[in-house]
Nucleic acid binder design. Structure first.
Lengths: 349, 349
DNA sequence: GGAGCGATTGGAAGCGGTTCCAATCCATTC
DNA sequence: GAATGGATTGGAACCGCTTCCAATCGCTCC
């Protein structure tokens, strides 16, 4: 049961190597009888074609890369990326592509480029996390390697992307808080270098404006998408801005950290302070109290990104697309259900 | 700046293709002057060798696969796997290997095997999650594809593995509880089909026995490593076994779910009930209260697994090894600090 | 029955490397 | 000065598959 190659298959099936190749690739011009003979031999001997040879001759690898940041504190510290990978993987599996996984960081640019992009050829690449985009989009464009971004990147509108509608998400989160009667609403967002964070902040502002609530820039806190950041920021805000009765956190991880800090400070959620998150990660149901949040279709994001990329590779899609997936508000308990006006004090000085 | 191949390099450097290949692969028998000329041409034209051709001729791909379960509720729902992948990736990067990522599940075995193992050739595979091992170890053994397991698998002691010392971890967790004065200590563990879960349970039992505390099998609850499982199990236990004053949870995710259930039921942690987790995932600092847990070196696990695999591939290591990494007890607040005997009642009936 | 034609088939030339082997160098050694 | 032998070099086969092209086959149609 040792390995057998295309020539052997051809011989056993009494046809030429060309015919075997044609049935392997579903090409036309193969008679039914020949096809059947070949298929039988393939099954009988468990023939598996050598992918290196295939790639070499066909000049493509049927393999895409997914690149994310190696910063363990950021995207990685929660279940987000794995679910995204799963989406990418399953779309690729369906289309018979495979996925190479890579992490990069600012420090290793040189090493990375050399190895990842040079040595190994990929048919296309999915860029996950904006810092990754900034690092590599240019290079990919230059080498004409098809790419798709997860999340929109301001500087690279010429590359197709998939994202959740961040603006709409935060808009509805904040609107929810306003409807609950909150007026002094804080925002805890990610780095404003990221388009995503800008959009989430913009949604927050717009929701307030539309509701006739004045926007107080002092209520906006910028940090990272981590529990630690959410925790630390909240701790410092509680004392300085006790009049804030609700916080919009731009990620569930931040929200979780915030919850922890609030608890330490003796603030009850949602009675004293309401908290809303973003993402609906799997733990959001089990925070104390369960987190009201914005659900984004993470798996779908991955799946769709892979589909776009493969279409790009095959020339099925040529024009660039910036797809926005719809987020949903998931109401649990961290914002409570009370309504009517609610003031613990005026705006911050 | 278009792509250039080995022949062109040879021509521009006034040497033969063989010489170029030798410098590329650091083979001996190349004069310094020839080497330098080749290196210069390579740099000047930014030559990058075609990996498909290399693989075809050299009969290896310098690519390994990492296989995990596609069950989104299990291993995936936390940051565990991403950190593990990072470890694998970075070791591979250092050794100039690349990593293909795959998910499988029981349902897709057929499809999977066909595509993953047949079409694409991998130099080796890392199996992550025991259900994956059960599904594929046999096949990999049969095909003589080098493999390394993350976690020990009872049925496959002939395959090298890396794991944390689960027994020692839970032993120290439970010992910690005992020292704190607890006598009625419950355990919430994963499926006993998994060696890992068996070991964690065994550590729990041994710690009790060694401390002279009778083991009550009624206090052992078996579930999955998820927040949901921890939550649901705890909810049902609280009423039935109110005399239990401390719970050993075999994962932080379970512990988080348990915390949530305890809170809902009005139990205070650690005052009424102590909880200890396992893993020390990044969120463990931010649960309410912060979780006392067993830290395991996840990144190192990945890193070490990759190293073992590559050594196996290159024949540097031939004998199988079952490596146990050391876990550490991380004391935070979920177990409190009280001491002395503590009984809220006798053992369960 | 033979010309004409589309469907099938087989042959052969790559794809871009690795590696074995024979040939060539060049410095020693006798 | 020629023989010796190790270091270097180039030639060529080969890895297994795709694909172009020419040859063949089997019909239909006049």
């Amino acid at each position: 049961m040792s390995k057998i190659n295309i020539d052997q298959v051809a011989r056993y099936a009494f046809v030429s190597r060309s015919v075997v190749s044609r049935v392997l690739n579903n090409h036309p011009h193969v008679s039914d009888v020949a096809r059947e003979r070949v298929l039988n031999v393939i099954k009988k001997y468990n023939y598996q074609r050598n992918s290196a040879a295939r790639s070499l001759a066909a000049k493509n690898t049927r393999e895409i890369g997914i690149l994310s940041t190696r910063n363990p504190n950021d995207v990685m510290s929660n279940g987000f990326s794995t679910l995204l990978y799963l989406g990418v993987f399953e779309e690729c599996l369906a289309q018979r592509y495979s996925v190479r996984q890579m992490f990069i960081s600012t420090e290793m640019k040189e090493e990375f480029q050399k190895f990842i992009l040079n040595e190994h050829t990929l048919d296309g690449v999915i860029l996950f996390a904006e810092e990754v985009t900034d690092l590599l989009a240019e290079e990919l464009l230059f080498r004409e390697i098809p790419a798709v971004l997860i999340g929109h990147a301001p500087g690279f509108s010429s590359i197709s992307s998939v994202d959740v509608d961040n603006f709409a998400g935060s808009y509805s989160a904040v609107t929810h808080l306003v409807r609950l009667g909150h007026r002094n609403i804080g925002a805890m967002v990610g780095s404003q270098l990221l388009q995503e964070s800008q959009d989430r902040l913009a949604g927050y502002r717009k929701a307030l404006v539309d509701a006739g609530v004045p926007v107080n820039e002092a209520y906006v806190s910028v940090g990272g998408y981590t529990q630690k950041s959410g925790h630390d920021k909240m701790l410092s805000r509680i004392k300085r801005q006790p009049e804030v009765t609700a916080w919009f956190c731009a990620s569930d991880t931040m929200a979780m950290g915030a919850l922890s800090a609030l608890h330490k400070s003796g603030q009850r959620v949602p009675d004293d302070v309401a908290v809303v998150g973003f993402d609906d990660l799997s733990f959001a149901r089990y925070t104390i109290p369960p987190l009201t949040t914005i659900r984004q279709p993470i798996y779908q994001k991955g799946r769709y990104a892979a589909r776009m990329l493969i279409d790009l590779i095959n020339g099925k899609q040529t024009d660039i697309e910036h797809r926005n997936l719809k987020p949903d508000l998931v109401v649990r308990e961290s914002c409570g259900h009370h309504s009517g006006m609610r003031h613990k004090g005026g705006h911050a000085p």
